[in-house]
Amino acid sequence: MNEVSTIRPKKFEYLEHTGDIGLKIYGTTLPELFANAAEGFTSIITEVEKIEPKFRNQIVVEANGLEELMIRWLNQINYLFEVEGKLFAKWEVCSLNKNRLSALGEGEDFDAQKHPILHEVKAATYHQLKLEKRKDGWFAQVIFDL
């Protein structure tokens, strides 16, 4: 069982919430923030280190503004898992502006024997959502409904 705790404090950390779970996400650049958010999110579903890069997938997400783009991005990754059974170990954000993100993911098909399931995530929510530039880089906070 993967301990839900601060595994990689530089990329993301977990946030206490009575019913659900949240992430505080850090990135030196905006593309890095989005990539780290994806990794943090995937770590809520399963053990990321057990996902091998067997295929590559390009996705494009569009939204009205960066905050909404973050939520759409994470919910799209959840959709790919739930509907297409795809898990991603790593994402490279190829292009990003406040309304559109294009990214290349590396991962493999979900295998119940290999990938222990930690949580079913209903959605990334807009509750207490934050995405801001700070002195030392970018910061986001997202709370998930489990």
Binding site: M1, E3, V4, S5, Y14, E16, H17, T18, G19, D20, I21, L146
Partner: peptide
């Protein structure tokens, strides 16, 4: 209603 967060439960 939950009393402990998931992390506290773990």
């Amino acid at each position: 209603g939950r009393r402990l967060s998931r992390r506290q439960a773990i």
